[in-house]
Design a protein around this nucleic acid. Structure first.
Lengths: 201, 201
DNA sequence: CTATTTACATACGACCGTGTTTGTATAAAC
DNA sequence: GTTTATACAAACACGGTCGTATGTAAATAG
């Protein structure tokens, strides 16, 4: 037994999180035993139980590791001269991250299709906090666009924001569930631009 | 042991499916044992194994029991004089069914948030068949609207159909994940009408 | 340099869920 | 009216998984 330094222990921790993500993605969270994760990480269950109290805590750690940096990535410029372009940029950024960053994509795939929202996971169904903030950002951006007369007549900021919110939710879902060859994945950028074009004055 | 008639046996089968839906919804598919389902149905595992080979088959039976009648419910009139109104009606019908029919709603909740798409469930991720047909129906309806000059200029049927497809996907998701008091649930009808209003000439 | 804590590996006990097998009373078939 | 198939209940055997307890060598604290 070679006792590790603090730095090496932290690396072990990250390896376990990485392994958990891989196994979660392949087997689903429920059908993943800590033994599988440990094996995939090249350690034993002892190491896993040392770093995490149970599978639930490991799952949350894995989630925060990838999701937190993701929501911070999509930001809106509050003083944008062209709010609609700002929205478009933000939406495009979402799918750029999905395409470019494997860790984020895999984690979103797990929380979308490879876990069951019951008991301890129930509260984070819909990620209430982040989602609502995103919708609020959209509403404010559309309101700024309305103030500048950039919106097509007859559309209120609230309605447009909700519609865009639903569009993003649906596109992310279909983007994730389709494989790399999926038309939704290939055409995401075009669809975002077309969606925004629909609301310009 | 009171041997049942064929009719009574069929009732038992439906009771088991009903019980499965309730327990799946509360515990998630993976954390639901056949013992739990049997108890909820007032029978033993013996009855469950008599009617279904395993949990997987029971899950599929439960799904077909509610989903098949659902997709058939949303139809498009191919000869509609007002294709946009037809689309709107079809979309409204989706959320009417979700609101009115508990069985359908609960089943959709299960397949959306209470099961993990791995192994045998992997192929039905995204319900490839039904979804694609719905998108095709939308595209054809928008094409008919385009032929009649009902669409706002600059929008192609394909783009509008995809946009509506994403909208529906997102709205169904948020509709389901919000509780009965959710603003997405209350305002679904209004959001559908607003969505359609955006594309009229 | 000693004592203690750390970072794991290993071993243990217990429970659960699964699939199957066997039992059985009755409905249905002939 | 037998016979057979049905519709379950009850019992069994099995492996998997969990949490914990224990062991241990090296890092760190003093």
């Amino acid at each position: 037994m070679v006792r590790k330094t603090k730095e090496e222990a932290e690396i072990t921790r990250l390896h376990i999180i990485d392994a958990a993500r891989r196994v979660f993605l392949q087997c689903g969270v429920s059908h993943t035993s800590l033994e599988k994760i440990a094996a995939a990480a090249g350690v034993t269950r002892g190491a896993v139980y040392w770093h995490f109290r149970n599978k639930s805590e490991l799952f949350f750690a894995m989630r925060e590791d990838a999701i937190l940096p993701f929501v911070d990535r999509v930001v809106f410029d509050a003083e944008d001269e062209e709010p609609l372009a700002g929205i478009e940029t933000a939406l495009l950024e979402i799918f750029r991250v999905l395409a470019d960053e494997q860790k984020t994509r895999e984690t979103l795939e797990i929380v979308s299709f490879k876990c069951e929202y019951v008991d301890e996971l129930l509260p984070l169904m819909g990620c209430s906090a982040g989602q609502q903030a995103f919708l609020d950002d959209l509403t404010r951006a559309y309101a700024r666009a309305a103030a500048r007369g950039l919106l097509r007549p007859g559309a209120t900021p609230e309605v447009l924001a909700t519609d865009t919110f639903m569009f993003v939710g649906g596109l992310v879902k279909h983007w994730l569930e389709g494989g790399p060859e999926s038309p939704f994945r290939q055409g995401a950028e075009e669809m975002v631009r077309a969606h925004m074009a629909l609301r310009r004055a």
